[in-house]
Write a protein that binds this DNA or RNA. Structure first.
Lengths: 362, 362
DNA sequence: TTGTATGCGTTATCAG
DNA sequence: CTGATAACGCATACAA
């Protein structure tokens, strides 16, 4: 019992050949009695197979690569938990690479993974245009790859993302129902497809309700960080507020905006309703808690991961998840805003909410 | 160029034996000319070695296990980035296990890792008493293990943690300097050694400055979540405020408290200064931004990981990191609090701060 | 310094 | 259905 038992020890103890044991372990043809005997011996010996040896024989690496701009990203953290769950089921390891781990963009590590076939598959979270070479390299060596919430449309790898247009429409419905008529949107820069889709959904959703999203009310933030959201807000709040609701393309942006709003004394949701996208759990910690359209990040992670395993030779698919509006505290009836400003707490909040649906019918 | 070149192909092309190539790859004795030749051949062939084969031969698994209550924990996320960094340097994979991944505590996966020697090492983040069996199992099979910020003292595994006592003292110095005389502390339940040390440091630090931390001002939260912080705050704010500063054992707790404070209309830092521990980056997003004593999570992760590699046979060590007070917006001179309450913005904030040092001398 | 031979633990191929 | 045996790709005593 000194050294770990191998498949050979088991074979010896059971009086069969190693290949039989191997077959047993992999659920192949084994006669009833032999199967019985093996299960006993294995239990008695406390045998467990070596994954390294198995991987070598199978030509696998036993782990997948997960790459993202920063593993600190709260959105990614959610995704990771889904990946973790699925990976555990497959007893597979993972290699993490934050493209901006040391402050500057450096995809070298991931390139080496691809070149050296270091991983069995690749998950690119929030891949952007700059990841294009990475994607190319992966496709070239036939490395199974799935992109999650990509910023670019891709046809030669698996895609997992959300229906952001519907998400935008959900916000439109929500705000319209609350009686908002003048709404602003602040999106992401560059080619963020998510941001564009969210805006598109919002715009068309409003339009369907007879509300126009003015071009001058559509802003662009410098990046996707909370800091960028804050900088946008500084600008935004300089001028008198002429909208009753502000929709941010992501929660991260919203966090930055809300902080500045609080500093400026802008009351939310009384003076301004705020809506974000992603549904990050930390949004619930703020005051007011952020109303947001959530992505099922965990499910997305799980699916992204399983796609890597079960469709190794399959066609490239697009999996789209629905988004869900989670109504917290940062949105309120537009009517209440004015009422409160003038009457100071005379109007019960419930009344304003009840007035919502009628406005929706217009 | 159809199939991946192996060490044998390289040997053939270079006209040497495989063992020579192996030695070259591992930096052993190789004559100048041969080395030259090999480097050329390898470059020409685009050879890269198989880590699975190498691991099998070396009897390694090529990955370590990282276990934590929840991989969503912001503190852990920081730690993880350090681990990621170090792991990349060693070209090693990782297996993640959230003990509470599916809501209920389930260490089964980790037990199986240990039993099957599935990993080369184990990092337990914030291990508690309930992880004791896990630790035992790991020690029993001689699996290199390091615990980070453990809640229990352990002598038979590597320990990486912070000097929480000094951290508590730093808070004492800070608050005393700001003129606070009546201070409250809310800590973690059970046997959290970190929480106890933070309290101890705070208490002794205050004492050294002639300030007594009253027993009735020391509270205990139900758990370490923001929700628990919120529930504590509900209780805390029920009675009239008789302290000018509240110290929370962790930032997470503080987040929950601040939200309730905002709801209750408690002004921070005017009515109440708030201090947390951990220095989570998200603390900067709040309004006011949370003053906190930070841990160098990333460094801790890096060191925890490297300990796993370089002291495989070495003695069990304790690595202690310093904590650093990061002063943001949630703390202010105690004097200003009263002044503002009564005089309404007459006292410039700077004056109060200037008064601090003298108070410190008492 | 370099080459030879053997082991690492499984899986897969092909006879039996 | 089962049993030898050859890969898998690399590392390392040991001999030269």
């Amino acid at each position: 019992m000194a050294k770990k038992p191998t498949i050979a020890t088991v074979a010896a103890h059971a009086g069969v050949a190693v290949s039989t044991v191997s077959r047993y372990l992999n659920g192949r043809y084994v006669s009833r009695p032999v199967r019985q005997r093996l299960s006993e011996v294995i239990a008695a010996l406390g045998y467990s197979r070596s994954w390294t040896a198995r991987n070598l024989s199978l030509g696998r690496k036993g782990c997948i690569g997960v790459v993202v701009d920063s593993s600190q990203d709260p959105w990614f953290v959610q995704l990771l938990s889904g990946i973790e769950e699925e990976l555990a089921a497959h007893d597979t390891g993972l290699m993490l690479s934050s493209l901006e781990l040391r402050g500057v963009y450096d995809p070298a590590l991931v390139f080496s993974w691809i070149r050296d076939r270091r991983v069995d598959g690749l998950i690119l979270a929030k891949s952007q245009r700059r990841e294009r070479p990475l994607l190319r390299a992966a496709v070239d060596v036939q490395l199974p790859t799935v992109v999650v919430a990509p910023d670019e449309i891709t046809t030669d790898v698996q895609v997992v993302r959300c229906n952001n247009i519907a998400g935008g429409e959900a916000v439109a419905a929500h705000l319209a129902a609350l009686g908002h008529r003048r709404i602003a949107f602040a999106g992401l820069p560059e080619h963020s497809i998510d941001s564009r889709h969210r805006l598109r959904g919002l715009r068309s959703g409003l339009q369907a309700r007879g509300i126009q999203l003015e071009a001058r009310d559509v802003y662009t933030c410098a990046s996707f960080t909370s800091e960028a959201g804050g900088r946008f807000a500084e600008r935004f709040f300089e001028r008198p507020l002429d909208v009753t609701a502000l929709v941010l393309a992501t929660d991260a942006l919203a966090f930055g905006v809300m902080r500045v709003a609080l500093q400026r004394g802008v009351r939310m949701p009384e003076d301004l309703s705020i809506v974000g996208f992603d549904g990050l759990p930390q949004g619930a910690l703020f005051h007011p808690a952020l109303t947001s359209v959530s992505q099922p990040m965990r499910d997305m992670g799980r699916v992204a991961c399983s796609r890597l395993f079960d469709t190794l030779g399959g066609r490239m698919e697009l999996t789209e998840f629905p988004m869900e509006l989670v109504e917290r505290e940062s949105t309120a009836p537009a009517a209440a805003a004015h009422a409160r400003k003038e009457m100071h707490l005379v109007v019960p909040t419930d009344r304003g909410a009840a007035a919502g649906p009628s406005a929706d019918g217009e």
